[in-house]
Design a protein around this nucleic acid. Structure first.
Lengths: 213, 213, 213, 213
DNA sequence: CATGAATGAGAGTTCATTCAT
DNA sequence: AATGAATGAACTCTCATTCAT
């Protein structure tokens, strides 16, 4: 009845809510690892639950189905990714700098979220649905992300950085290039100097792969 | 045409062998279509058999397992791909021309083998095993192919075309770039002017994505 | 109203006991509604608990298991039903009037306990165990009820109302007839004139379905 | 190439089709037994398959799902029942005789299909869907059957056999009466003289339960 | 004593693989 | 050698029951 200001208002409910979020993240982390390693089909719900440290049924108190778990995972990581990239791009005014910032943010994000890289590639390849891609809540975030990227490219094109025809190819080129090199670099050696990768991408985009002569 | 008993030494055996190859190709073609459309997991052996025009069990007379079928499919198409690329590269002397020839051959091959593109990307991404990639007989061909590509790149590097450090990244960049743009281009419009794609790749590799100023 | 310490000997225990009964009835009422609507299998313990306004686990402080809950529900309602019918039958002396009173009591009871009708029918059909019927505490009450009914019929038979052979069939006939018409009548229109139903049953039993000519 | 008239035209295909039907009936018979004994929910597909003498998965080559199996079972038996009753009713001209024939056919059918009686009662009680009743292919047959029965009753009512008001109650009464007595009679003693049951029903319908005085 | 999250056995269903015909 | 029905292990998902808080 009396709520001393120093006390927690509803400690039980608050704790439960917090625990719930923690467990959700436990499951998402386990799912990220196993989906990344084995793919969607070959990772079983039982494995994921056990990897997270719970019994099989528990996972269904947090996610309606395997699809929903996968979707939520993509949604969260993509939203995080989108936020990071958007912030980086917004910090720059010039189109060229925006593009560079986008690359820098991408490299930094995936160096810190290596487990997510495979899932991201599977879900984004060629900006198109690979078989197995499932519709769901992540679609919205994905659309937002693709929209952001398109905008950056359009601005760059409008600024005369590259020719506006075949803009789709330019987008696909940047994504394919960065995805695949990141995957190779992070698979070979789990530690890579971020700056080096960023420089490689920027240089390639600006001058091509040929050695500057 | 005439089956004189004295002619072919073992005509029955030869015919059998020929029939066997025909059926094998029937199955592989059906598998290519269905694996490409639905992915490895979602294409069932029964579907593949029926698509090929045979009964479920028959497929196991030609391939030990689903994995083996998939492996053999990759092996054959990769071998074909390797052959085409090798021939193109061998036709050129200068390292830069070899690389251009490699790109040209790749574009031509995948424009004519669109169904295989998805499988190829899934199996080759970043020159590393994506989830779903299975070890098997195709590995050898893949190694040969990767070796060929590495040799071309090394020669180009030796010729001073690009710096030899981070050669792995250059390879990954070329593969990721071309794969992803091919996938985007062939998904959007099933008919694309080969030459345009080749030019786009060569230009990007030589000058980057920035508009030539 | 006034809790003088000298008054009740064990007020706390009494209150607790009373509260216990209240909650038990809460659960039973919720169970009656949901078992009646969805059937035994399709009503979940969690639903019942929430419908009653408690948490899932609480229900197990009052009932050992789902089966036990169902059994107790049957037991209580059947006991109530038995009491009502017994009182009505005891109020009459003549066998024919006893039977009429039994019918009247049955109609009145089920018009006021429609939710229980489905459960009763499922559990009593043909005086035999339908699938889903579970043995348990209600068996005793059921036996008592069936005994009462048999006694009424036997008295009627002894009084020459109907022939004593095939008495079991007569009982089954009365039960099946009344159950099914009640179910149809109460399903079609949730409000039915009691007297009309009673008359229909008495008339049918006494004269058959044929129009009195 | 030469089809001697005495030979079977397509022995393999014909045999397969026949075997298929036999197996379908194996499963339906097993399902009838187990659904009748334990109810829909408590009979598992594995049990049914094993009871039929096959492995779990085999049943799904014949029926899409548990629901579909149950539906097909109801459909077939109801169709058979409908046919028998229709033929019997059509053989009579007078309304009263039609009703008698209907009863006679019902008794004869359920004496010979005792296992189906419980399922029938569960699916038809009060001509209304009990919980658990599932829509499906049997609905059509059930509607046809209920229509036939209604027509017989209407004709009887039109002929002045009983008053047309509360015709729904009369139908429910006949069904409830016969169902429940059949269930009791066949549960108590698996062998019952058909004629005796028919006589009991006709007498009850015409004169009521009271002993003819 | 109430709570509701965790449990895990068990159900329906799929499908790669086998094998009698 | 081809067929396609049968197999059964494995998977996703449910829910009665338990138990730490």
């Amino acid at each position: 009845m009396n709520d001393l200001p120093s006390e927690a208002p509803e400690p039980v409910v608050a704790r439960r809510e917090r625990d719930r979020r923690i467990r959700e993240e436990d499951f998402l982390a386990a799912a990220e690892r196993l989906f990344g390693e084995r793919g969607f089909q070959d990772a079983s719900m039982e494995e994921i639950a056990r990897e997270a440290g719970y019994a099989t049924g528990t996972i269904y108190r947090y996610f309606e189905s395997k699809q929903a778990l996968f979707g939520e995972l993509l949604h969260r990581r993509l939203a995080e990714y989108f936020g990071v990239v958007e912030a980086a791009v917004d910090g720059e005014a010039a189109p060229r700098e925006k593009l560079r910032a986008l690359i820098r943010a991408k490299v930094r994000f995936f160096v810190m979220n290596q487990a997510f890289l495979r899932l991201y590639i599977g879900a984004t390849d060629a900006m198109a649905g690979m078989p197995g891609a499932c519709p769901g809540p992540q679609s919205e975030v994905r659309q937002k992300f693709l929209g952001l990227q398109r905008k950056v490219l359009e601005e760059a094109a409008a600024a005369g950085l590259f020719s506006p025809e075949r803009q789709g190819w330019v987008g696909a080129a940047i994504i394919g290039l960065t995805n695949n090199v990141l995957l190779a670099a992070l698979t070979d050696a789990s530690w890579v100097e971020e700056q080096e990768l960023v420089d490689f991408f920027i240089r390639t985009m600006e001058n091509g792969l040929w050695k500057a002569s």
